[in-house]
Write a protein that binds this DNA or RNA. Sequence first.
DNA 1: TAATTAACCTACTATCCCAATATGTTTATA
DNA 2: TATAAACATATTGGGATAGTAGGTTAATTA
Lengths: 138, 138
Amino acid sequence: MRISTKGRYALRVLVDLAEHQADDFVPLKVIATRQQISEKYLESILKVLVRNKILTGRRGKGGGYRLTKPPEQYTVGSILRLTEGDLAPVACLDQGADNCPRTANCRTLPMWRKLDELVNNYLDSITIADLMESPPAK
Amino acid sequence: MRISTKGRYALRVLVDLAEHQADDFVPLKVIATRQQISEKYLESILKVLVRNKILTGRRGKGGGYRLTKPPEQYTVGSILRLTEGDLAPVACLDQGADNCPRTANCRTLPMWRKLDELVNNYLDSITIADLMESPPAK
DNA sequence: TAATTAACCTACTATCCCAATATGTTTATA
DNA sequence: TATAAACATATTGGGATAGTAGGTTAATTA
């Protein structure tokens, strides 16, 4: 991490869908307009979410997207790890990172690990339902 | 943030200099060799640290770099904010970010703010002296 | 069954940032 | 005065981000 538009948009879409669960399937066009996000770009993001069973897509007239689970069952962390690939604060901690020869006596690595843990724990403690309840800042 | 080599290298150099305080001025070449970092690239990083009075540079034969303060007076956070420019987890929180019109009722902004606070507080709680004492991971 | 709607799929592009390199200039010491 | 070393400026290659563009498949509904 740093969280890019991909992750930020994904979260906003999930909150949007959660707030419109009554509408059954919501078309991409509607979400994009409501959230002011480019349709085509959003499409590429939702594709990932569908592939990972976060959303279901229904084709054809009357189709659109829908959550597969209730909002409180999605953690922010799990969504971001999907769209961002990795939340590690340094390259050294990326999955499949070639562990450098200095790992054994690196003075800073323990700190990065703790930071990584801190961030992930925080983001895993928040659900989409929490974001819905989040009071608008004044 | 995500922390790039710039910030990671800067921290490693400061720890290195802290561990060799007795040597007075340490030439770039020596640090670069010891830390296995490209000389020229490291130079550009140290320039920032000198400009911000983190280090003093002395020119000419017998010159090099030296800490301006004892190691326990540098927080990791302050160093990273210098070299990385900003530690904000999302662009929305960057300094001088054009605050988007949805700020007022953005469902996710409060979360990003808390995350930002969490990260900065953690990194500000660690000093270069702490990193020196950090036991090598086995 | 034909028109329409909307998801799905593949490929391409402009821009920015990271990480580094290259070349030179100034300053101090021995 | 030769040498060592910081300081300065410009350029480059690569990869990721943030999108565009155009076409294909599937489900409604008139």
